[in-house]
Protein backbone atom coordinates (compact mmCIF):
# COMPACT_ATOMS: atom_id res chain seq x y z
CA UNK A 1 0.00 0.00 0.00
CA UNK A 2 1.45 3.31 -1.01
CA UNK A 3 2.18 5.97 1.58
CA UNK A 4 -0.31 8.80 1.77
CA UNK A 5 1.12 12.23 0.85
CA UNK A 6 0.47 13.66 4.32
CA UNK A 7 2.21 10.68 5.93
CA UNK A 8 5.09 10.92 3.50
CA UNK A 9 5.67 14.60 4.23
CA UNK A 10 5.22 14.19 7.96
CA UNK A 11 7.81 11.40 8.03
CA UNK A 12 10.29 13.82 6.48
CA UNK A 13 9.23 16.75 8.65
CA UNK A 14 9.57 14.67 11.82
CA UNK A 15 13.08 13.58 10.84
CA UNK A 16 14.08 17.16 10.09
CA UNK A 17 12.73 18.39 13.41
CA UNK A 18 14.85 15.78 15.14
CA UNK A 19 17.90 17.09 13.30
CA UNK A 20 18.27 14.00 11.15
CA UNK A 21 19.45 13.69 7.61
CA UNK A 22 17.03 14.02 4.75
CA UNK A 23 16.29 10.43 3.82
CA UNK A 24 13.96 10.37 0.89
CA UNK A 25 12.28 7.44 -0.80
CA UNK A 26 10.99 6.73 -4.22
CA UNK A 27 7.91 8.81 -4.84
CA UNK A 28 8.89 11.56 -2.44
CA UNK A 29 9.63 13.76 -5.44
CA UNK A 30 5.89 14.19 -5.86
CA UNK A 31 6.06 16.49 -2.88
CA UNK A 32 9.37 18.10 -3.69
CA UNK A 33 8.20 21.68 -3.15
CA UNK A 34 6.78 20.82 0.26
CA UNK A 35 9.92 18.90 1.23
CA UNK A 36 12.27 21.68 0.16
CA UNK A 37 10.16 24.20 2.06
CA UNK A 38 10.10 21.95 5.12
CA UNK A 39 13.90 21.83 5.09
CA UNK A 40 14.03 25.62 4.99
CA UNK A 41 11.59 25.95 7.85
CA UNK A 42 13.53 23.43 9.92
CA UNK A 43 16.69 25.44 9.30
CA UNK A 44 14.98 28.74 10.08
CA UNK A 45 13.74 27.38 13.37
CA UNK A 46 17.35 27.05 14.49
CA UNK A 47 18.62 30.36 13.14
CA UNK A 48 21.88 30.95 11.27
CA UNK A 49 24.25 28.07 11.81
CA UNK A 50 28.00 27.86 12.15
CA UNK A 51 30.32 24.97 11.57
CA UNK A 52 31.13 22.96 14.66
CA UNK A 53 34.74 23.36 15.80
CA UNK A 54 35.36 19.67 15.07
CA UNK A 55 34.08 19.95 11.52
CA UNK A 56 36.00 23.14 10.95
CA UNK A 57 39.21 21.53 12.10
CA UNK A 58 38.53 18.56 9.89
CA UNK A 59 38.10 20.88 6.92
CA UNK A 60 41.29 22.75 7.75
CA UNK A 61 43.13 19.47 7.90
CA UNK A 62 41.70 18.33 4.62
CA UNK A 63 42.56 21.57 2.95
CA UNK A 64 46.13 21.02 3.99
CA UNK A 65 46.33 24.27 5.90
CA UNK A 66 47.77 24.91 9.28
CA UNK A 67 44.99 26.29 11.44
CA UNK A 68 45.42 30.02 11.97
CA UNK A 69 45.15 29.40 15.66
CA UNK A 70 45.16 32.96 16.90
CA UNK A 71 42.55 34.29 14.55
CA UNK A 72 40.47 31.15 14.94
CA UNK A 73 40.34 31.61 18.66
CA UNK A 74 39.44 35.24 18.26
CA UNK A 75 36.61 34.28 16.01
CA UNK A 76 35.37 31.72 18.41
CA UNK A 77 35.69 34.21 21.19
CA UNK A 78 33.67 36.81 19.38
CA UNK A 79 30.98 34.50 18.22
CA UNK A 80 30.68 31.72 20.69
CA UNK A 81 32.68 31.73 23.81
CA UNK A 82 32.81 35.38 24.66
CA UNK A 83 36.51 35.37 25.37
CA UNK A 84 36.77 38.95 24.19
CA UNK A 85 34.60 40.12 27.02
CA UNK A 86 36.66 38.27 29.53
CA UNK A 87 39.87 39.78 28.24
CA UNK A 88 38.81 43.17 29.52
CA UNK A 89 37.28 41.89 32.67
CA UNK A 90 39.92 39.64 34.07
CA UNK A 91 41.02 40.74 37.44
CA UNK A 92 41.67 37.38 38.92
CA UNK A 93 39.41 38.14 41.83
CA UNK A 94 35.69 38.22 42.17
CA UNK A 95 33.97 38.03 38.86
CA UNK A 96 30.29 37.97 39.61
CA UNK A 97 29.06 38.58 36.14
CA UNK A 98 25.91 39.65 34.50
CA UNK A 99 26.14 38.68 30.88
CA UNK A 100 25.63 41.56 28.59
CA UNK A 101 27.20 40.02 25.54
CA UNK A 102 29.54 37.31 24.48
CA UNK A 103 27.23 34.87 22.78
CA UNK A 104 26.50 34.59 19.12
CA UNK A 105 23.55 36.95 19.53
CA UNK A 106 24.61 39.34 22.25
CA UNK A 107 22.12 41.97 21.16
CA UNK A 108 19.26 39.75 22.21
CA UNK A 109 20.02 40.79 25.77
CA UNK A 110 20.82 38.87 28.86
CA UNK A 111 18.23 37.26 31.04
CA UNK A 112 17.26 38.22 34.54
CA UNK A 113 19.94 37.73 37.17
CA UNK A 114 18.87 35.02 39.62
CA UNK A 115 19.00 36.03 43.25
CA UNK A 116 18.39 32.94 45.37
CA UNK A 117 16.98 33.61 48.81
CA UNK A 118 19.69 32.89 51.34
CA UNK A 119 22.04 32.26 48.45
CA UNK A 120 25.48 30.88 49.17
CA UNK A 121 28.58 30.49 47.08
CA UNK A 122 29.17 26.88 46.18
CA UNK A 123 32.43 25.53 44.77
CA UNK A 124 31.77 23.67 41.51
CA UNK A 125 35.32 22.88 40.44
CA UNK A 126 38.67 24.23 39.35
CA UNK A 127 38.72 26.87 36.65
CA UNK A 128 41.17 24.72 34.71
CA UNK A 129 38.51 22.01 34.45
CA UNK A 130 36.26 24.25 32.37
CA UNK A 131 37.15 24.22 28.67
CA UNK A 132 36.86 27.64 27.05
CA UNK A 133 33.72 28.03 25.00
CA UNK A 134 32.11 24.82 26.23
CA UNK A 135 29.19 25.13 28.62
CA UNK A 136 29.33 22.62 31.44
CA UNK A 137 26.44 21.75 33.67
CA UNK A 138 26.89 22.13 37.40
CA UNK A 139 24.65 21.88 40.43
CA UNK A 140 25.00 24.48 43.15
CA UNK A 141 22.59 23.08 45.67
CA UNK A 142 19.15 23.61 44.21
CA UNK A 143 20.45 25.76 41.36
CA UNK A 144 21.36 24.06 38.10
CA UNK A 145 23.56 26.08 35.78
CA UNK A 146 25.60 25.87 32.63
CA UNK A 147 28.97 27.44 33.29
CA UNK A 148 31.06 28.73 30.42
CA UNK A 149 34.65 29.75 30.82
CA UNK A 150 35.46 33.15 29.37
CA UNK A 151 39.21 33.54 29.54
CA UNK A 152 40.15 33.72 33.20
CA UNK A 153 36.57 34.21 34.28
CA UNK A 154 33.34 32.33 33.94
CA UNK A 155 29.72 33.09 33.27
CA UNK A 156 26.65 30.95 33.85
CA UNK A 157 23.03 30.65 32.87
CA UNK A 158 20.18 28.63 34.31
CA UNK A 159 19.93 25.03 33.16
CA UNK A 160 16.15 25.33 32.84
CA UNK A 161 14.51 26.50 29.61
CA UNK A 162 12.95 29.95 29.87
CA UNK A 163 9.81 28.76 28.12
CA UNK A 164 9.06 25.24 29.28
CA UNK A 165 10.18 23.72 32.59
CA UNK A 166 12.66 21.36 30.99
CA UNK A 167 16.33 20.84 31.69
CA UNK A 168 18.57 21.91 28.85
CA UNK A 169 21.55 20.00 27.54
CA UNK A 170 24.71 21.30 25.88
CA UNK A 171 25.26 20.32 22.29
CA UNK A 172 28.96 21.00 21.79
CA UNK A 173 28.78 20.54 18.05
CA UNK A 174 26.09 23.19 17.70
CA UNK A 175 27.54 25.27 20.50
CA UNK A 176 24.07 25.59 21.83
CA UNK A 177 21.96 24.77 24.82
CA UNK A 178 19.11 22.63 23.58
CA UNK A 179 15.68 22.31 25.11
CA UNK A 180 14.52 18.72 24.59
CA UNK A 181 10.89 19.66 25.12
CA UNK A 182 10.37 21.84 22.11
CA UNK A 183 13.45 21.80 19.99
CA UNK A 184 14.59 25.32 20.79
CA UNK A 185 18.17 26.36 21.35
CA UNK A 186 20.00 29.06 23.27
CA UNK A 187 23.49 30.42 23.00
CA UNK A 188 25.94 29.83 25.83
CA UNK A 189 25.11 33.30 27.15
CA UNK A 190 21.44 32.39 27.32
CA UNK A 191 20.08 34.23 24.27
CA UNK A 192 17.38 32.48 22.30
CA UNK A 193 18.25 31.31 18.79
CA UNK A 194 15.86 31.36 15.87
CA UNK A 195 13.39 33.75 14.35
CA UNK A 196 10.93 33.70 17.19
CA UNK A 197 12.81 34.70 20.30
CA UNK A 198 12.11 33.16 23.65
CA UNK A 199 13.04 35.03 26.82
CA UNK A 200 16.74 34.74 27.59
CA UNK A 201 17.83 32.21 30.19
CA UNK A 202 18.26 33.45 33.73
CA UNK A 203 21.79 34.55 34.57
CA UNK A 204 23.39 32.62 37.42
CA UNK A 205 25.97 34.53 39.41
CA UNK A 206 29.51 33.19 39.44
CA UNK A 207 32.92 34.11 40.67
CA UNK A 208 36.46 32.76 40.57
CA UNK A 209 38.50 32.53 43.76
CA UNK A 210 41.98 31.11 43.92
CA UNK A 211 41.46 29.25 40.70
CA UNK A 212 38.16 27.73 41.85
CA UNK A 213 34.79 28.42 40.28
CA UNK A 214 31.95 29.27 42.61
CA UNK A 215 28.27 29.57 41.77
CA UNK A 216 25.66 31.38 43.82
CA UNK A 217 23.35 28.54 44.75
CA UNK A 218 20.81 27.81 47.40
Amino acid sequence: MSERPEDRVDRIVSALLRGRRLKLRGGDAEEKEAIVLAARLAAASRGPQRMSPAFRQQLVKQLGAATPQESWMTRRAALVAGLGIAAGAVGGGLLGRSLDGGGSQPSAGAGKVLEPTNGRWIDVGALADFAPGQARMVKAGAVGAFVTRTGDGVSAVSSICSDLPCELWWDGSQHALVCPCHNRTFTADGSSNGTYKLPSLGVVQTRVRDGRVEVLGA
Binding site: L22, A42, A43, Q49
Partner: peptide
Protein backbone atom coordinates in the same frame (compact mmCIF):
# COMPACT_ATOMS: atom_id res chain seq x y z
CA UNK B 1 27.94 26.15 5.51
CA UNK B 2 25.24 28.49 6.81
CA UNK B 3 23.83 28.86 3.30
CA UNK B 4 23.72 25.12 2.74
CA UNK B 5 22.28 24.48 6.19
CA UNK B 6 19.51 26.95 5.52
CA UNK B 7 18.55 24.87 2.48
CA UNK B 8 18.85 21.32 3.81
CA UNK B 9 17.84 21.91 7.43
CA UNK B 10 20.15 19.44 9.13
CA UNK B 11 23.76 19.40 10.22
CA UNK B 12 24.90 16.06 8.83
CA UNK B 13 23.89 16.87 5.25
CA UNK B 14 25.16 20.44 5.59
CA UNK B 15 28.59 19.19 6.67
CA UNK B 16 28.80 16.65 3.86
CA UNK B 17 27.84 19.22 1.26
CA UNK B 18 30.16 21.92 2.63
CA UNK B 19 32.97 19.42 2.49
Amino acid sequence: YAFIYSRVGNRADAEDLTQ
